[in-house]
């Protein structure tokens, strides 16, 4: 560091102090930068497109078993296993097989209709057996296979992960830093100086925006390189959405930490405020599945707004104006949480 004999504005000095403190904490860097990348990689691999799903069918050992086996052999994509009667239910439960054929006549299909892959396996097995028994297809359909960049699950997932990260790391890093400072009486010491109290809270939020560059930049470049996830909207629109989103969650982080006296209490409040958003805000699956009555609540949550805006910009190429509603909602969250936090903040 250069020798600066006289400091600049306290807001800048506070922000700089917070940045230095963060950067010198290897664990914090891991959770903010490395962990999200690892999570994205794991999920990306788990959900990457694997082509047509294979069907796993079981056949109960017995007189007709070899006939059924022969009938299923020509069908591509159906893997067959012989099972003893006592193995049937366990194999179904564990997902080793999705349907079990009890040789007939007529054959019996044992499967769980509430599992989509089971229902699908039943149809595939039935088709193959019927065809082997002599049924003729009325026609051979033509197929259009959709497998375009931008319409895959991973494309939909990455903006959600990004939103979730901005929420999680924003709230945890700010919350911990504030509660830590309170338990060590650093806040009391600062309150004994003429420091403007809003500067302290603003510095937390500003420092957060600097980490955001690393965090979002890392995840987006990774998603783009590893999975070719597209970014169709302008960089400017994306940056604005990210900034406003990060401000909303740092405001929320400051608010949640504004009175907690212990790390445990703060963690409880963090989880309490984030849990609904993990579930409802459309990170892993669309929030449209929830009942209509809950939709106004879901759409008032900051993570829903952030995820919607990120998806609009990245996948639909939306401009700033098109996500104006989401940006307004996020800004409102940022301002209201900051103002309330400043009012109720506990310095001692």
């Amino acid at each position: 560091m250069s020798r600066r004999e006289y400091p600049t504005h306290p807001l800048l000095e506070l922000t700089l102090a917070r940045l230095l403190e963060f950067a010198r904490e290897p664990e914090a860097v891991f959770w903010v930068v490395v962990f999200p990348l690892a999570l994205a990689l794991a999920l990306g691999i788990a959900f990457r497109s694997t082509g047509a799903e294979a069907v796993f069918a079981g056949i109960v050992e017995g007189p007709g078993a070899s006939g059924v086996r022969a009938a299923l052999a020509p069908a591509s994509g159906i893997h067959v296993r012989l099972l003893r009667p006592d193995q049937v239910d366990r194999a179904l439960r564990d997902g080793e097989v999705q349907v079990v054929v009890l040789p007939g006549p007529p054959p019996t299909y044992r499967f769980d209709p509430t599992r989509p892959e089971s229902a699908f396996a039943r149809l595939a097995v039935d088709g193959a057996l019927q065809r082997a028994a002599g049924r003729k297809d009325a026609f051979v359909p033509r197929e259009q296979r959709v497998q375009v960049v931008g319409a895959r699950y991973i494309d939909w997932l990455i903006p959600g992960l990004l939103g979730m990260n901005i929420m999680g790391t924003g709230m945890w890093s700010i919350g911990f830093s504030i509660v830590w400072a309170r338990t060590r009486r650093v806040l009391k010491r600062l309150a004994a100086t003429p420091m403007a109290r809003r500067d302290y809270l603003l510095a937390q939020m500003l420092a957060r925006l600097v980490f955001l560059v690393v965090e979002a930049g890392g995840l987006l470049s990774f998603a783009s390189l590893a999975f070719s996830v597209p970014i169709r909207g302008s960089a400017a629109a994306l940056v604005v959405v990210l900034l406003v989103g990060a401000l909303a969650f740092s405001g929320l982080g400051v608010l949640v930490a504004s009175r907690a006296r212990t790390i445990e209490a703060a963690s409880g409040w963090m989880n309490f405020s984030m849990l609904p958003m993990w579930v409802l805000s459309g990170v892993f699956f669309s929030s449209a599945h929830f009942p209509a009555a809950t939709q106004p609540f879901i759409h008032a949550l900051p993570l829903t707004a952030l995820n919607d805006a990120l998806r609009a910009v990245m996948l639909d190429g939306a401009g700033i104006a098109a996500v104006g509603g989401e940006l307004a909602l996020l800004s409102a969250w940022a301002v209201v949480t900051f103002v309330v936090a400043l009012k109720v903040f506990r310095w001692t």
Partner: peptide
């Protein structure tokens, strides 16, 4: 003011702490 048992930010240097507190005045 020097409070009883204040712990200053451990990951900052002596110079950075002094400069930070100096900036408030």
């Amino acid at each position: 003011v020097q409070l009883q048992e204040t712990q200053l930010n451990e990951k900052l240097t002596v110079e950075e702490i002094v400069r930070l507190y100096r900036s408030f005045y």
